[in-house]
Design a protein around this nucleic acid. Structure first.
Lengths: 215, 215
DNA sequence: TCATATATGTGAAAAGGTTCACAAGAATAT
DNA sequence: ATATTCTTGTGAACCTTTTCACATATATGA
């Protein structure tokens, strides 16, 4: 299905374009040029055009891109023009915050299951979702037709839980634990390492680092 | 001060090496090879060696790298062998989670000030820190000698707050709001976009994307 | 002590990603 | 209708990053 090998950077930038287009739409823009789009996300016009060109031709010469239409196209490319059934494992600090994080829902990532191993939490209702026992992870992930699992558990147990998740047939995992996880090659695994960017800032301050671009 | 221009990717990987070395230290390893280090973070041995070579020669041929020593060196390169005075603006869902996030403290990022605009929160004690009024942001950032500011505020107000933060002389900002921010060129600005990785997973699932490597 | 195995450090090659530059199409003004 | 301006789409050039491959150094075992 992959026409050409799309780089990770391009995909990440699609997220940025989508975000910018959402805003432009709210501001009642009909069309937008690659120049304006680039400016808003601190990129170059050529980069914007090249990225989009991998997926088709969406613009009109002399005019630019139709905001609503392009936004829709990108959402379709990213697969966020639908609802994804997401389960969150670990309803601690980070986990709780993620349940309430509006941005996820807005983009179709619906958290429909919560898991924890804390007896005090299991069975209780958290933002409208009853917290399940992590002991039943595999079964309940299957029964609820979960497609994406978000891990917000301590690093020490992340691998065990991951093994369970993989056994449940889940193909996409987003891991917030600061540890690398072993998964079979057919599983999509991504990491959200929140210290990393702080460490980058630290490095930059200490070394007077000259970045190519901010962000 | 920059010997050579170090790439962002290299710096991010230093974070990974640091993490792996911390674990290796706990496991009582004396030395570690680039091969083992690479395996643990799903990289290649050559990559590890090349990255490290930008900063000096830390290894011993035939033996590998001394775990404790290399960990210390990397922490020094990243500037996390010291304490950073961090302020967090926005004590909502994400903000609260970040205050309790152990990983930050562990790496020297000490959150010493909290700000919010909610009258119910201002003056109250949150995990040992009294929440300040965001109206006094500029003054209090200066008075507390804050070096890094973390923004966990709604996208709609992020730019105004950023302007305040910049006026306070802060040179490093980590932004969790899903919006791009305008800052002068001498400010280090980084974004933590938590939807981005979910969107990547979505893209990967829909397009059967073949990644270069996981993560 | 010598041979063998191990593993670093690094130029050079290869791969990958970004920017350039321009032809071509569309809109707008005269 | 025509000229002018605007802006896309894209091959090619350029630049950056990764990987290769090997000389070099150390450790280990016989």
């Amino acid at each position: 299905m992959t026409r050409k090998r799309i780089s990770e950077s391009t995909i990440h930038r699609l997220s940025l374009y989508y975000r910018a287009l959402s805003l432009l739409e709210k501001e009642n823009y009909e069309t937008v040029s690659s120049k304006e789009l680039a400016k808003r996300e601190k990129l170059t016009p050529a980069q914007v055009r090249k990225d989009l060109s991998f997926f088709g031709t969406f613009g009109t010469r002399g005019l630019g891109y139709p905001v609503r239409e392009l936004k829709h196209q990108i959402s379709s490319i990213l697969g966020i023009d639908r609802v994804w059934r997401v389960a969150l494992v670990g309803v601690g600090n980070i986990g709780s915050a993620l349940v309430s994080y509006k941005e996820f829902a807005k983009q179709g990532f619906q958290i429909v299951k919560l898991f924890d191993n804390d007896q005090r939490k299991i069975g209780s209702n958290h933002k409208g979702i009853v917290i399940s026992d992590i002991a039943n992870l595999e079964t309940e992930l299957r029964e609820a037709n979960i497609e994406i699992v978000v891990l917000a558990v301590p690093a020490t147990v992340a691998q065990y839980i991951t093994d369970d998740v993989v056994r449940a047939g889940i193909k996409a995992i987003l891991n917030f634990a600061p540890v690398n996880l072993k998964v079979p090659p057919d599983i999509y695994l991504r990491h959200e390492n929140m210290s990393m960017e702080l460490e980058y800032l630290s490095f930059a301050l200490v070394n007077n680092h000259v970045p190519k671009r901010n962000s």
